[in-house]
Design a protein around this nucleic acid. Sequence first.
DNA 1: ATAAGCCTTCCTGCAACTGGAAGGTCAAGG
DNA 2: CCTTGACCTTCCAGTTGCAGGAAGGCTTAT
Lengths: 129, 129
Amino acid sequence: MNIGEVSTRAGLPAKTIRYYEEIGLIAAPRDTNGYRNFGAAELHKLTFLGRARALGFSIADCRALLALYEDQGRASADVKRIAQQHLARIDAKIADLRAMQDTLSGLVTACAGDHRPDCPILRDLGGTA
Amino acid sequence: MNIGEVSTRAGLPAKTIRYYEEIGLIAAPRDTNGYRNFGAAELHKLTFLGRARALGFSIADCRALLALYEDQGRASADVKRIAQQHLARIDAKIADLRAMQDTLSGLVTACAGDHRPDCPILRDLGGTA
DNA sequence: ATAAGCCTTCCTGCAACTGGAAGGTCAAGG
DNA sequence: CCTTGACCTTCCAGTTGCAGGAAGGCTTAT
């Protein structure tokens, strides 16, 4: 399988796959012509990576998760810890965004949005000045 | 006011203030010794920027908002449009994160987290393999 | 022979800073 | 007068996770 095919099958851009190889996340054996030649195992790993990334795991987390995935003697506790930490980061991010959303939606509602210069949004940003 | 004082008063790191000057977001007049010397107006602008950034506005948005802030003849509609677009981006981000949160919390709950290798999280990422 | 459609590497850029090195300036203390 | 320490300066590199594009090689079909 060349990179194009693996790209469509894994649902990842070729650029991303090359990048993953570059940072040592996956291996990509070469043909004599220099082309990358992927097998089923690498496709599987790339699909794994795609899902993990879609769940927001960092590359560092992905590396750890992939290692655990390959390790038949792993402890599920190690996987769970990573997932929990990530979940905590997500929760925190949502909380931050919600705070912004609250403030902003209030301001947007309060703003007339017409031709006049008076604007509660700018008033708020400027410190009620 | 030197950069240190303006930094504490605006609540922004000195590095950030230098960066804002570098990208032309603010001006920073110099003393004869080369030190930046800020006046009340610049402090005010930096505070404005700090609040806008805290609400998640991009630097590009901040630049536009700051211009509108300074423009006495602005239309509040222009401000509102920027804020609404940003709000939409925030809504979308929250939706994304919530989807991740949903999936992940389910997986985390399902994972025993003990010494055994069996793990629903890895099973899911690996495509039920 | 040539054109299209793959593939390769390498370099740059994005957002918004942060950290650190190397060095100038200033006020206080001995 | 000298030193110490806290400021300040510029410049360069790194962060995250790729994307865009140039310059060129391989393959297949016409």
